[in-house]
């Protein structure tokens, strides 16, 4: 399949006899926003963790630009051009916001192995540029440990972008934000995706964000994909209404 940045085929993962993810296949193209939705415990995070190398799938293939990346460590997958944000934010709490982004920039440039130079003198402007994009420049000097949850999500996005990624994995990127901020952040992501031909895979509980921002939606329930298609198709899908959406949407 041409144009697919990420291609997943027959992904399986079981934990102690419980099938967390079963036979999941999908693909994301450059510039596309794909939403992965489903109830908590459906296997969304397990899926994500297999895509960036944190978990090894029991079997299945994950291809990035045609290359099988199963078995690679997360650090190696990043170097191939994958940026990720976490459901429970993971940033360097004792470092400042700017230093967090600088870490990612230093890493991207392969300049972390120096023992005697002083950290933080390089990539300052680049870091500030990224922080400006996500609306965090005014907090660049604050320590990440004291930031609000929604702001940490933005720092994570800036760190992911520092890699000039081919693929962006965003696990609940807008949790903790006000409705307007949510849409704004996802519009930013969608804009970048289109402009730089980044493939974006994201999970999200806010159906308004999902239906307004996603190009396509896939629905996971008890580890299995039960539906996939455009927002309109998914909204109308009776199986999705039965297990996930219920009567309100």
């Amino acid at each position: 399949m041409s144009g697919a940045v990420l291609q997943v085929e027959g992904l399986h993962k079981a934990f102690g006899g419980v099938q967390a993810v079963a036979d999941v296949s999908f693909a994301v193209s450059a510039g596309e926003m794909l939403a992965l939705v489903g109830p908590n415990g459906a296997g969304k995070s397990t899926c994500f963790n297999m895509l960036n190398g944190q978990l090894a799938p029991d079997h299945g293939i994950v291809r990035l630009d045609g290359r099988d990346i199963v078995g690679l460590r997360p650090s190696a997958i990043w170097r191939l051009g994958v940026g990720r944000t976490f459901q429970i934010t993971a940033t360097f709490a004792s470092l400042s916001v700017r230093e967090n982004v600088q870490m990612a920039l230093y890493s991207h440039a392969g300049r972390l192995r120096s023992l005697l130079s002083r950290f933080g003198t390089a990539y300052r402007a680049e870091a500030d540029g990224l922080l400006q994009q996500v609306g965090m420049l005014d907090q660049a000097d604050r320590t990440c440990g004291v930031l609000a949850y929604g702001d940490l999500k933005r720092v994570e996005l800036a760190m992911a972008l520092a890699n000039q990624p081919r693929l962006l994995l965003m696990d609940e990127p807008t949790a903790g934000m006000a409705p307007r901020e949510r849409v704004a952040l996802m519009e930013l992501a969608a804009g970048l995706a289109r402009k730089r031909a980044i493939a974006v895979l994201f999970t999200e509980h806010d159906m308004d964000v999902v239906f307004s921002q996603a190009d396509r939606i896939i629905v996971l329930d008890r580890g299995q994909l039960i539906a996939g298609g455009t927002p309109e198709e998914v909204r109308a899908n009776p199986a999705v209404r039965a297990v996930y959406l219920g009567g309100t949407h």
Binding site: P39, N40, A242, Y244
Partner: peptide
């Protein structure tokens, strides 16, 4: 209701 499928929320 956090993180529950809409149908479980009911």
């Amino acid at each position: 209701s956090e993180g529950l499928a809409p149908i479980i929320v009911e």
